[in-house]
Design a protein around this nucleic acid. Structure first.
Length: 381
DNA sequence: TTTCGTACTTGTTTGGTGAC
DNA sequence: GTCACCAAACAAGTACGAAA
């Protein structure tokens, strides 16, 4: 990467970067001054992570999962419970609803919260990313630039941004008994815009969970006493920039590793694939990545290949623990943010011999499926 | 500097199969 | 009929690199 490009994309330099200021045009009088144009981008994520940890001091291995959940775990708005599985299967009456209830209650207790207030104790990163974004989006629709763009069409009845007659009808229908009079048009538009912005922001969460999970893990590891001194910790590292790996052949695509830990005393390399959740297509990717890493390795030395995940599905966890390459387990370790979570969720299924849950229970017992705490403790040993 | 295409991440939606 | 499990298509956003 050129120096000029690195300057334009400070996040890729692995160095904390200052937030990019917004143009004045997008700021309201009361608008946020510190919201970046790339609110979900690396620079803003790391700025917020620094802010989150600024008052918290060093982290003990046993606290790592709490920080991961406080930062990233969210409440599924359709059921009001902590998200642990696909939304459709968690709806009331379906088989993951009681499991979501169990997990929600357990988590509230463990975080010193209550089932009612847990929503305020998790999802810190997303709530802070979007805190100013709502105002920003609403301000953008009224900015001088927008007024200028609409000027040639003034008075021709063009729809205003955010007009949604159906949504408005729902609001009116629900509130007609309590509304003394029709709301002014400007109030109606503002209300609809705020509702739409609120819903749209939720759709952006997945973008924070992706690289945000990698950044959160790195931020936690760097704050474990002694770990940052002992390991070189890098996120989204190009494979050939890791000691002992060849560059890709000409014409082939560069490989990046989600998280890399290089032990300073002996150069032992730990390649981490961080996936908040797992799907079948991503499982295939684990194997493809591992084969590429193995082919590129040029020291003839072992390296560790670790999956860190928050997947709750027992079948997917089981497969991750058991996937083999050339008659050996492919993953050195499978790390779950907090294995007690899945166990609490599907305790009803751990004795069902034909399901995957008992296998997951066994993998946890044997240490094949370990916790964030267990993995970090092992790193510091 | 801006625009566009591509690659990548995530969760959601939809639909299917097989066991019980 | 219910549930676990599987798979593909999709949606939304970030980031990179090339071209204009």
């Amino acid at each position: 990467m050129s120096a000029a490009r690195r300057a334009r994309n400070p996040a890729r330099s692995n160095q904390p970067a200052a937030a990019t200021p917004l143009s004045d045009d997008l700021l309201t009088e009361n608008g946020p001054a510190d919201v970046t144009e790339r609110a979900f981008g690396s620079a803003n994520r790391n700025r917020l992570l620094d802010q989150y940890f600024a008052t918290r001091g060093p982290i003990k291995p046993g606290e790592a999962w709490e920080h991961a959940y406080r930062l990233l775990l969210w409440i599924d708005r359709t059921i009001g419970l902590a998200h642990c599985y696909e939304s459709d299967k968690c709806q009331p009456g379906r088989h993951w609803y009681p499991r979501s209830l169990a997990f929600h209650g357990w988590l509230a207790e463990r975080l010193g919260s209550t089932p009612a207030t847990l929503k305020d104790d998790v999802d810190w990163l997303f709530r802070n990313v979007t805190a100013g974004l709502d105002a920003l989006v609403l301000a953008a629709s009224k900015s001088t630039m927008v007024q200028k763009q609409r000027a040639p069409y003034a008075g021709q009845g063009f729809p205003e941004p955010g007009e949604d007659p159906k949504l408005l009808a729902i609001v009116h229908d629900a509130l007609q008994e309590w509304l003394p009079a029709k709301l002014p048009d400007s109030v109606e538009r503002s209300l609809v815009e705020r509702i739409q912005t609120h819903i749209n922001q939720e759709n952006k969460r997945k973008n924070l969970i992706g690289e945000g999970f990698e950044d959160t893990l790195a931020a936690i590891l760097r704050r474990i006493p002694g770990l940052a001194k002992r390991y070189d910790i890098r996120t989204r590292q190009v494979l050939h920039e890791i000691p002992g790996f060849n560059p890709v052949r000409k014409g082939q695509k560069e490989r990046k590793v989600d998280l890399v830990l290089i032990r300073k005393p002996d150069g032992r390399r730990t390649l981490v694939t961080a996936k908040w959740s797992v799907r079948a297509d991503r499982e295939e990717q684990f194997t493809a990545d591992f084969r590429d890493y193995s082919r590129a390795e040029n020291r003839s030395e072992d390296f560790d290949y670790i999956l860190v995940t928050n997947e709750f599905d027992p079948a997917r966890l089981k497969r991750a623990c058991e996937v083999r390459v050339e008659n050996a387990l492919m993953l050195t370790s499978v790390v779950h943010v907090q294995p007690q979570g899945p166990l609490v969720a599907y305790q009803d299924a751990v004795h069902h011999k034909n399901w995957s849950a008992p296998h997951v229970y066994k993998h946890i017992q044997t240490g094949r499926l370990t916790s964030l705490e267990g993995w970090i403790t092992n790193l510091t040993a």
